[in-house]
Structure formats: structure tokens, C-alpha cells
Simulated scan of single mutants.
Amino acid sequence: MLILTRKKDESIIIDDNIEIMVVGISEGKVKLGIKAPKDIEVHRKEIYEEIQKSNQEAANTKKIDFNALRKLFK
């Protein structure tokens, strides 16, 4: 893990196209601004973990019996 110290209005650059800037610091919280290309998804970690969990659950669902489904719509 790389650990950096930044002050308000200072930033870091990742891979030439992602900029993370400290836009505010107050009451023990840091507010970050993130500039990234539209094709790169940016999520808070807890949201990312929920998305991964949901995707895993969807992948583990039972297979659909298409023959039975066809019979229902005849």
C-alpha cells in the first residue's frame, strides 16, 4: 500500500487519467474529488462490496428450465 500525505487542494494522479484531489477537511473527515474517464466506475468500498455480493448471488441462482417455461406459454 502506498501512503501519501496531501493538503487541501492537492491531488494525486493514477495511470495518467485519474486524479484524486483533497477538496476539504473538516471534523475528522476528508472530502475527495475524483476525476476519471466515464468508462471507469468509481464506488465507495461498501457500495462496491454490495455490488459484488449481488452479482455473486445472481450468478448462483438456479438454472431456468426453458422447456417448462415454453409449456407455460403454449
Rank of each mutant, 00 (worst) to 15 (best):
M1V: 06
L2R: 05
L2F: 08
L2G: 05
L2V: 12
L2Y: 07
I3F: 13
I3G: 13
I3T: 15
I3N: 14
I3C: 11
I3K: 15
I3V: 15
L4R: 12
L4K: 14
T5N: 05
T5A: 01
K7V: 01
K7H: 06
K8V: 15
E10P: 07
S11V: 00
I12R: 01
I12D: 07
I13C: 10
I13L: 11
I14S: 03
I14R: 04
I14E: 02
I14C: 02
I14M: 06
D15E: 03
D16Y: 06
D16N: 15
D16C: 08
D16S: 15
D16T: 15
N17W: 00
I18F: 08
E19G: 02
I20W: 02
M21W: 03
V22A: 03
V22F: 00
V22I: 14
V22E: 04
G24P: 06
G24T: 02
G24A: 01
I25R: 07
S26E: 04
S26D: 03
E27K: 11
E27P: 07
E27D: 15
E27W: 05
E27H: 12
G28I: 04
K29L: 13
V30C: 13
V30T: 15
V30I: 13
K31Q: 03
K31E: 14
K31A: 10
L32P: 06
L32G: 10
L32Y: 07
G33P: 02
G33Q: 08
G33S: 12
I34N: 10
I34K: 09
K35P: 00
K35M: 07
K35T: 08
A36K: 09
P37H: 04
P37K: 04
P37M: 05
P37D: 06
K38T: 12
K38A: 14
K38V: 10
I40M: 02
E41G: 15
V42K: 09
V42T: 09
V42R: 10
V42Q: 11
V42I: 13
H43Q: 11
H43L: 14
H43W: 09
H43C: 08
K45S: 13
K45Q: 10
I47S: 13
I47P: 05
E49L: 09
E49G: 01
E50Y: 04
E50C: 07
E50H: 08
E50L: 14
E50S: 13
I51V: 15
Q52N: 07
Q52A: 05
K53V: 06
K53C: 02
K53N: 12
N55K: 15
N55R: 14
N55H: 08
Q56D: 11
E57P: 00
E57R: 08
A58M: 12
A58N: 10
A59K: 13
A59T: 00
N60E: 08
N60Y: 00
N60T: 00
T61A: 07
K62M: 00
K62T: 11
K62N: 10
K62D: 11
K62P: 07
K63I: 07
K63H: 09
K63R: 13
K63Y: 04
I64P: 11
I64N: 09
I64F: 12
D65A: 04
D65Y: 01
F66N: 08
F66K: 06
F66I: 11
N67Q: 06
A68W: 01
A68N: 09
L69V: 12
L69Q: 06
R70I: 13
R70C: 02
K71A: 13
L72P: 01
F73S: 11
F73I: 09
F73R: 10
K74M: 03
